[in-house]
Design a protein around this nucleic acid. Sequence first.
RNA 1: GGGCCUGUAGCUCAGCGGUAGAGCAGUGGACUUUUAAUCCAUUGGUCGUGGGUUCGAAUCCCACCGGGCUCACCA
Length: 488
Amino acid sequence: MEFDDLQQTRIAKLQTLRDTGRDPYPPRSERTITNAEAVAEFDRREGETHTVVGRLMLKRGQGKIAFLTVRDGTGDIQFFVQQNNVGEVAMQVVKALLDLGDIVQATGTLMKTRNGEVSIDVTDIRLLSKALSPPPEKWHGLQDIEKRYRQRYLDLIANDEARQVAVQRSRILEATRAFMNGRGFLEVETPTLQPLYGGAAARPFVTHHNTLDQDLYLRIADELYLKRLIVGGLERVYEICKDFRNEGIDRQHNPEFTMMECYQAYADYHAMMDIVEGLCAHVATTVIGSLTVTYGDHTVDLRPPWPRIPLRDAVKDACGIDYVAITDTEELRRRAREAGAEIPSDMVRARIIDELLKAFVRPSLIAPTFLIDYPVELSPLAKTKPGDPTVVERFQPFIAGLELGNAYTELNDPLDQLARFEEQARQRAQGDMEAMPVDEDFVTALMHGMPPTGGLGVGIDRMVMFFTNQPSIRDVILFPALRSTEGR
RNA sequence: GGGCCUGUAGCUCAGCGGUAGAGCAGUGGACUUUUAAUCCAUUGGUCGUGGGUUCGAAUCCCACCGGGCUCACCA
């Protein structure tokens, strides 16, 4: 490892500190009050002696005094260092050996400066940890997008918004758990390493267990395991976990992402819509403090209930194509192309409908909306609508153009499930690598009887994107997937 | 994978065929109430990498390594 001039300078200071008997990395620290508390409670704490800590963010020397802005996890406070109080030696240390980025601790009297800034009138100041690399620019922060993702700690140090998003994400997860627990759901854990993957249309990551000498898949969903628990009589279960999908990376997709899946026995997809509405409203009120949320150019009202629009009607309204009335696939393809959609000649009927959804319906789904009742072909785990074997009871919630999740009335007919798996296998044989493999073990579970069940998956990252008004999933995942660079 | 954009000092950015620049940070100095402190002086670069065009390339061209947007793919 090589050190540049700025680092060499700091390493020299480090040596000076050691040579003069000062440990640049002492094992112990003290804190009697957080910075935020000191500022918030100043009126009744003025004059008290306190010890505060944090990272040195700004340094304003002025002869025999110095003002240091120090930031801990709660906020900023100012150190007011006067040579008369700390002595000439300590003053020299502050001026010559402390650098921006260092972690420091100071003891002194809580006071306000002439200009009203809450400060510690320092009597003792010490270094807790010497930073050997300089922090990002103090005013512009860290702008380089790549560096923000690769070295997130710098982003968190320099950019307030990055910190806010990280905190909000945690609060959203907390609110989600509280909401689900409050509805009687049991939080469970199912395997990340699965001998057979399933529950979504996606390509998996493959790994290998040495002792078993067996390939395993990182889960693309936990659906099939959670439904086994429903079979087992756990009537309301949910899991919040990472799923892994070996696919493209873009503003709304990361190869590992966080999903909340829940299943409720003796319920259907309407109950799942109630949960989505309730969950979003709960998160909005507890985390945002309002049912009105702004995302990008849009401001949406999350107040339930949300419109529940059959996909057929939504597509018909958006582009005038009634795909139910057009039974001939070639006719449907022709009409879709006329409307302006790009439809490859080998695209199957269900994908054409999906394309119509993406091209014409989705862009207009700004207000919270449920699209319901999807073609059966794309939903091998969902129950068909009574009286219509071509449509399943499935819905997707959309807010501000974001697709937040997926849900259905779960298929609990074991023989129908087996037939759907076999149809998937046929599509797989025809080259659709995202079609699901046959999971006979899951069918075996269904053969023991699964109650009528509603199931739901919510993309937590997208929910966080929405509630924190972030345009990219990389902004809500602390360490997003990036190509590794040479020499790292 | 395609198209468009992008990579210059530790950080934020200018320069876009003719001597490599600014602000912040750093270094030296002045300063006992600053708020991105101020003032004086000053160090710092294989202009992502490698080729090419040219009398001359940070600048134009090609390839490669990263990144962003977008389309495709994908919940």
